[in-house]
Simulated scan of single mutants.
Amino acid sequence: MNTKTVALVTGASRGIGRGIALAFLAQGMTVHVTARTVTDAQASVHPQQEGSLDGLKAEAKDLPGELIVHVCDHADDTQTEAAVAAALRQSGQIDILVNNAWPGYENMVEGTDYTWERPFWEQPMWRWNAMIDVAMRTSFVASRAVAPGMVARKTGLIVNISFWAAQKHHGNAIYGIAKAATDKMASDFAHELRPHGVAAISLYPGLVRTEAVLRNAEYFDMSNSESPQFVGLAISALWADPNRLEKSGKVHVTAELAREYGFADIDGKKIVPASLGDF
């Protein structure tokens, strides 16, 4: 058995996934990551405009952990399964799975048309495909692939990245459906995994300073914003908690975990926990 903590973070070339990977690496973990975007040139023509596996490798090179990248298009189940199999083959185990892959924010503006906030009957069906057929399905497929090893070792943590849209309308019906399903998935996984000592949770970040948010910072109140790494710190703290099974099956907020476990953001800032009324 690998004595280092081994994590797999899906969708880690940019945004929250990248931050989680960097936080884990800073703590000395072995971190497997997946993404489609390999080079900065590919990133420049991506709808999100930036963020690549090559860029992540450059940023991670001086960190104490080990980064292992897997080029993976999660729209293809076989690629998701192959990435998990490769991680298990290389590291022998996966202790933490973070289901973060999320193409749902791509193309919020189509041409000059902001389609994100259209009513459900005017939503483009590709958005359902991105959020449900890719993001939700990937979370299930990846979890299904890692669970047997966790069950056999009687330890592990599955984290689904979610958001308050699961509990209230937040601009887009498909978004709410996807996030509500994300929470339910974590809850039901937890029920079935609990007898085997494996935890599953749903995690709500606050306003995270992703590349896309920073490009549009003038539209946000950034005063209580979180670094992408802050999300990783929350997961690490939960993993270090010997009583984490008590939190299994529930929704958790990053800043609430920070308050409970006593850690700050990477700049030393104490983040104020958000609540349903803030969104």
Rank of each mutant, 00 (worst) to 15 (best):
M1V: 12
N2I: 03
A12G: 09
G15A: 03
L22G: 06
A26I: 04
H32Q: 09
D40H: 01
A41Q: 14
H46Q: 03
G51F: 01
L56Y: 02
K57I: 10
L63P: 09
P64V: 10
C72R: 01
D73V: 06
A75T: 13
D77H: 09
T78A: 15
T80Y: 00
E81D: 07
A82C: 09
A87I: 11
Q93T: 14
I94D: 02
V98C: 03
A101Q: 08
A101P: 06
E106D: 12
N107A: 11
V109F: 01
E110F: 11
W116K: 04
W126L: 11
A130D: 15
S139H: 05
G149A: 02
G156P: 06
A165S: 15
H169A: 12
H170R: 14
A173N: 09
A173W: 04
G176V: 12
G176W: 00
A178V: 07
K179Y: 08
A180K: 11
D183W: 01
F189H: 07
A190C: 08
H191I: 13
E192C: 07
E192I: 03
L193Y: 08
R194P: 00
P195S: 12
G197P: 11
G197V: 12
L203W: 09
R209S: 04
V213C: 01
N216M: 05
F220G: 01
M222I: 15
S223A: 13
E226K: 05
G232C: 07
L238R: 01
D241C: 08
R244T: 05
K250V: 03
K250T: 13
V251P: 06
V251I: 14
H252Q: 14
T254Q: 12
L257D: 02
A258G: 07
R259T: 14
R259Q: 15
R259I: 11
F263V: 10
A264C: 13
